[in-house]
Write a protein that binds this DNA or RNA. Structure first.
Lengths: 135, 135
DNA sequence: TGTAATGTCTATACCAAGTATAGGGTCAAC
DNA sequence: GTTGACCCTATACTTGGTATAGACATTACA
């Protein structure tokens, strides 16, 4: 299977696949005489695994960790659980931050009725004053 | 006021201030004979405004828009409201995405009791299989 | 007055996770 | 034999900064 076919099967772009290879997530594949990459089924499996992890917003470093662990079937999987838990924490923190942000934004938004002149705009006013009163 | 003092007063780094200048958020200040930047109080005010907007996670392009609008006190502020509303939408969408992510992660996490061998790890299994069944 | 320690300057490289492009080689069909 | 589709590498670009290097300027202190 050449890279175009692999891209089709995974839904990833050709550049992304080459990018993962450069970053060490995907083993360097065999090459044809004309230097084309040739992939086997296991590369497809691994790419789908990577894609799934990325869709869960794991970083390349985290995925790398998982792949390293995955390569040793007899070892304990506790590091996998740690990775997932740390990642869940990260996501939780981001949600909290964004939720706080949302409250601030809604409060600022409520400061301006529509169709006012800039010099009287409550939103701009908020943005100026909060800045001066904070931190 | 030189850039170091401005950095202190705003809590931004010197590099960040120069970065905002390069990106056009901050007007190019006067210079001393020895080419040092000299800022006045209005630069401080503007930087605090920018900092506040950044803390609300607005992009530099959005902030630029606000500053352009802000410079015309007699115009309508409706574009400000649009910017804020669009931004609130963005944040909402991100929260939704992260919340969905969190559910997926928790479900995956629950697939593995601790201290299992890699080859039997429910989490790794999930990450492989979800990948193959999706999209 | 000399010198050492800061402060400032520009230019450049780096981060994540790709995306886009240039400029070239390869392969199959017609 | 040439057109079109595919592949190759290398490089630049994105965002919002951060972190150098190497060169001047200013300030503090002896």
């Amino acid at each position: 299977m050449k890279i175009g076919a692999l891209a089709q099967k995974t839904g990833l772009s050709i550049q992304t696949i080459r990018f993962y290879e450069r970053r060490g997530l995907l083993p360097r594949p065999e090459r044809t005489q004309s230097n084309y990459r040739i992939y086997c089924a296991s590369a497809l499996k691994q790419l789908l695994f990577i894609k799934q992890c990325r869709s869960l917003d794991m970083s390349i470093a985290e995925i790398d960790q998982l792949l390293v662990t995955k390569a040793k079937p007899e070892n304990s999987c506790s590091s996998v659980n740690e990775t997932i838990e740390r990642h869940i924490e990260d996501v939780n923190n981001r949600i909290d931050e964004l939720t706080a942000l949302q409250h601030s934004l809604l409060s600022i938004k409520s400061a301006c009725a529509d169709n006012v002149k800039v010099k009287d705009c409550g939103v701009l006013n908020e943005l100026e004053n909060v800045a001066n009163s904070e931190d």
